[in-house]
């Protein structure tokens, strides 16, 4: 008799606790859903659906708005891949993006290193702010500013001449494009490298120095491997944005600066109005960027795991 109430209570409690557990499990499922919903809707509406639309348009060979719908096919892609004019444009776009990424890395790494490890603590935020400051003006204005600096009688050449050096012919060349791109995206590189270098385990540096490693070796074997994820992330960001930028090549590149992004622009807002072809080019651009992300992220992570 004494045991019956607990049994009874167990029996009556049982469905309730099952319900409780179900409720708990449901909350576990629902909570992340609720948290992810805004971003999910955002991504779905503004990334996934538009990308699918571009994919659909890219499968309509030479489709122009207002014209009757052509039948589905791979014509746009074949047009790109079978014509060395377009392949050359794609090749040049990659060269621009790779060159500006490397330039950003070479320029950005020492700066980020200095700010993160050597600059006095109280200056750091100010220095970082100084680097982010140019981002507050539009990249278009900054590109126009480069025209003023680089043109034949511009700021740079006036300065060079005044100290007795010959003028440089940079504006309207491919170097101007790389310079402009690197300038535009350097702040991103520095910020990302800084975030990565700041977390550097200094005890390892000291230990390496204690064990007799010369500074170059410490740098190559401790600093660089530890900041590899940051380097990968920075390069990735600069590479992708450079590949898609059309303002800088258009304004600074001169007569031979056609890039993929400019070509896409021409197909949509230029005389050709070939939205099908433009979408095909866009899909290739998206594909190239996605592949780069996949490869670099994988590569970056593995390095980070094995070496840090």
């Amino acid at each position: 008799m004494a045991t019956s109430p607990p049994i009874a209570s167990r029996e009556t409690a049982s469905p309730a606790s099952v319900f409780q557990r179900l409720k708990q499990r449901a909350t576990k499922l629902v909570e992340p859903l609720v948290l992810l919903l805004p971003a999910g809707v955002w991504l779905l509406l503004l990334l996934v659906i538009p990308t699918l639309m571009i994919l659909q348009l890219s499968l309509l060979p030479d489709f122009k708005p207002g014209n009757p719908l052509p039948s589905y096919g791979l014509g746009n892609y074949l047009k790109i891949l079978q014509d060395d004019v377009y392949l050359r444009v794609i090749f040049r776009s990659f060269i621009f993006a790779i060159a500006s990424t490397l330039l950003c890395l070479v320029l950005g790494f020492p700066v980020a290193y200095w700010i993160a490890l050597m600059a006095p603590q109280r200056w750091r935020n100010l220095l970082l702010l100084a680097f982010v400051l140019p981002l507050w003006t539009s990249s278009l204005l900054r590109s126009y500013a480069w025209i003023t600096i680089l043109r034949p009688t511009g700021v740079l050449n006036t300065f060079l001449n005044s100290v007795g050096l010959p003028s440089l012919q940079i504006l309207n060349t491919q170097s101007a494009v790389v310079l402009g791109l690197a300038y535009n995206f350097l702040p991103y590189m520095v910020l990302i490298l800084y975030a990565s270098l700041e977390k550097l385990d200094r005890r390892l540096l000291e230990a390496a120095a204690d064990l007799g490693a010369p500074p170059t070796q410490v740098f190559a074997k401790i600093t660089v491997p530890q900041s590899l994820p940051g380097i990968a992330a920075g390069c990735l960001l600069v590479f992708i944005t450079s590949l898609g930028d059309f303002v800088v090549p258009e304004l600074l590149g001169g007569a031979s600066s056609m890039t993929m992004a400019r070509l896409v622009y021409n197909q949509f807002l230029g005389a050709a109005r070939n939205w099908g072809f433009g979408s095909g080019l866009s899909m290739l651009l998206i594909l190239a960027v996605s592949l780069t992300i996949a490869l670099l992220l994988k590569y970056g992570d593995r390095k980070a795991d094995t070496l840090v």
């Binding site: 639309m53 348009l57 059309f246 807002l269």
Partner: peptide, 24 residues
């Protein structure tokens, strides 16, 4: 100048178009 600066916006517009123009 304006053409370039509105390009980003135009991109958004174009995205909207796709629906309309793809079903003539």
């Amino acid at each position: 100048f304006l053409q370039l600066s509105t390009a980003a916006m135009a991109g958004a517009v174009l995205t909207n178009c796709a629906g309309n123009i793809a079903q003539n």
